[in-house]
Amino acid sequence: MEILNALIQGVLLGGLYALFAAGLSLIFGVMRLVNIAHGDLIVLSAYLALVVVQATGLHPFVAALAVVPLMALTGYVLQRVLLNPTLGRDLLSPLLVTFGLSIIIQNALLTHFTADSRRLAAGPIETASLGIGGGLSIGLLPLAMFLAAVAVIVALEFVFSRTSLGRAFRATSDDAEIAQLMGLDRRHVYAMAMALSAAIIAIAGVFLAVRTNFDPSTGPLRLIFGFEAVIIGGLGSLWGTLAGGVVLGVAQALGAQIDPGYQVLAGHIVFFLILVVRPRGLFPRMD
C-alpha cells in the first residue's frame, strides 16, 4: 500500500519535472542551446512570485498571471542581449554565458533575499486530497501540477504544429540560413523561443514555490532534474519529457521509500541506467 501511494506521488511529481524539462527541451530543439541557468531562472520565478504575493496579498496562482509575462519578457531580452551573440560560435560560448548567468542569479538572490529558505502558502489546496479507494489518495496540489504539465505540453504541441510561430521555430531549427530567406529574423525567432521557455519556467517556479522550500542555491538541482527528464524521455519529444519526468519522479519516490537520503540519488541512478540501456531515451525523435 505504501509503495502504491509512493508510486502515485512519484507519477504526480513527474508533472513538475516535466515542467522543468519542457522549457529546456524547447530551446534545445529550436536553437541547440542548453541553458545552465534554467534552474536558477525557475528559482528566480519563485522569488518573483513571492514578491508579488507579499506586495498584493494575491493567491500564488493568481500572482502567476503577473510572473509569467514578466519572465517571458526577461527571457526575450536575455536572448537578444546575451545569448544571440553566442550562437553559431562554438559550444562553449552559450554554455559559459549561461553558467555565468547562473552564478549571477544565485548570488544576486542571495544578496537580496538572504540564504533563508522560503515557501509560498497556497491555502487549503496544499493539504486537500481526493480519496480514490483502498486507502489511497491523491493530493490536490500534486494533481494540479500534473494537469498543468499536461496542459503546457498540449499547448506547446499546438504552438509547434499549428501556428505561424511554431512553423518559424521548426523552419529555423531545420535550416536557420534558409529560414532567414523566408523573411524570418533569426534573432527574434530565438528570442521568442526563449520567451516561451521562460513562461514555462515561470509556471514551474510558482508550483515549486508552493510545493517545497526554496532558497537561492536550489536552482542547479532543478536544472539537473529537468535535464534528466529530457534525456530519459528522449531528445526533441515533448510527450517524452512528460514520460521522462514521470520515470524520474517514480524513481525518486521509490528511492525515498528505502531511505530519505536515497530520493535524489535513486533518480540519478535510474538516469544513468537508462543511458546504458537506451542512450537515446525512451521516445527519441531528434538526431
Partner: peptide, 24 residues
C-alpha cells in the same frame, strides 16, 4: 554517450552521484 552541452550536464549529474553517495 552524451554530446556537447548534454555531456557537460551529464558530468555534473555524475558529480552529484558522488556527493550523495559520500553523504551516505
Amino acid at each position: 554517450r552524451l554530446h556537447g552541452a548534454y555531456f557537460a550536464i551529464g558530468t555534473w549529474v555524475a558529480a552529484e552521484v558522488f556527493r550523495l553517495s559520500f553523504a551516505q
